[in-house]
């Protein structure tokens, strides 16, 4: 067969952001206006701790890296000395990362299983309906009585949060697999259900699974800070600790740090997502 007239291979559509500097300038403008409002608000509010100014906050942020703090590495129990800000961020990651990864794996697994197996779906759907609306932070009481409010307890709460978001990503993804694709696969020799799941359902659901995971990265930051406000060590705990000493600028500095950590993870994951889903 020849391909003279139907070689319209789709041109890659250039991202519409690039090439228009006005859009960046608008964004920069928005930031500057915010900084101005913040600065004026801080200047005119008394007592000063109510609204710490931008400059004080930046100074506090720099101070986070001027001193060092020793933290205990879980499991091994050894000491780790890091710049203070980084040390507390690392403490957070000690429960954030295991909670997120474990929650995501379990959520994706159950979502795939329920989306794929009608009988299992029938069995578990009412239970899911009941458990799903419980906010992850409500589990904090059980986290405390079961694990104590330390790394394990906080990881448990993060786990609950990550679990549901990833569950729904995978569940919806597998449910949405087109029957055309499964039909095509069966005519091409896919016989076993498990092969169909691996060869068709999983790759077809990958976009939703990955979107679910990316959403959970952000949601778990909210949850982890909530858990730390109850006393688990980490940046969230430092926010409330600083405010107890009326060092509000330091609280703001830790808020920045969380924002920065989230941004790095989100951008990193988007890059990975773009590579994995190049076919979309």
């Amino acid at each position: 067969m020849s391909t003279q007239t139907d070689t319209r291979s789709s041109a890659v559509v250039a991202g519409s952001f690039e090439g228009d500097p006005r859009r960046y300038l608008r964004g920069l403008g928005g930031l500057l206006v915010f900084l101005l409002v913040w600065w004026v608000g801080a200047m005119t509010t008394q007592p000063s701790y109510l609204v710490p100014g931008p400059l004080d906050s930046v100074r506090a942020f720099i101070d986070l890296f001027a001193t060092t703090t020793a933290i205990v590495v879980p499991v091994s129990g050894s000491d780790l000395v890091l710049p203070t800000g980084l040390a507390h961020l690392t403490e957070t990651l000690f429960h954030y990362v295991p909670g997120l990864l474990l929650g995501a794996s379990c959520g994706v697994s159950l979502g795939l299983a329920m989306g794929w197996n009608g009988a299992l779906d029938d069995w578990l759907r009412p239970l899911v309906r009941v458990l799903r609306p419980i906010p992850p932070l409500a589990w904090v009481v059980f986290a405390i009585v079961w694990f104590g409010i330390h790394h394990t307890g906080a990881a448990f709460i993060v786990f609950v949060g990550a679990f549901w978001i990833n569950f729904y990503g995978a569940y919806g993804g597998v449910e949405g697999v087109s029957t055309d694709l499964t039909d095509a696969a069966s005519t091409l020799g896919v016989e076993r259900d498990l092969s169909m799941l691996k060869l068709v359902a999983l790759p077809s659901a990958a976009p939703q699974v990955l979107t679910g995971f990316r959403t959970s990265i952000g949601r778990c930051w909210m949850i982890v800070v909530g858990a730390e406000l109850f006393g688990a060590p980490g940046v969230g705990y430092e926010i409330i600790n600083a405010s107890n000493n009326l060092a509000m600028a330091t609280s703001v500095a830790y808020m920045f740090l969380i924002s920065l950590a989230f941004l790095c993870m989100d951008v990193g994951f988007r890059l990975l997502e773009g590579r994995v889903l190049a076919w979309r």
Partner: peptide
Amino acid sequence: GMVFQEYALFPW
């Protein structure tokens, strides 16, 4: 072998 109306290619 089957050829489908809407192609049914595996997009990935």
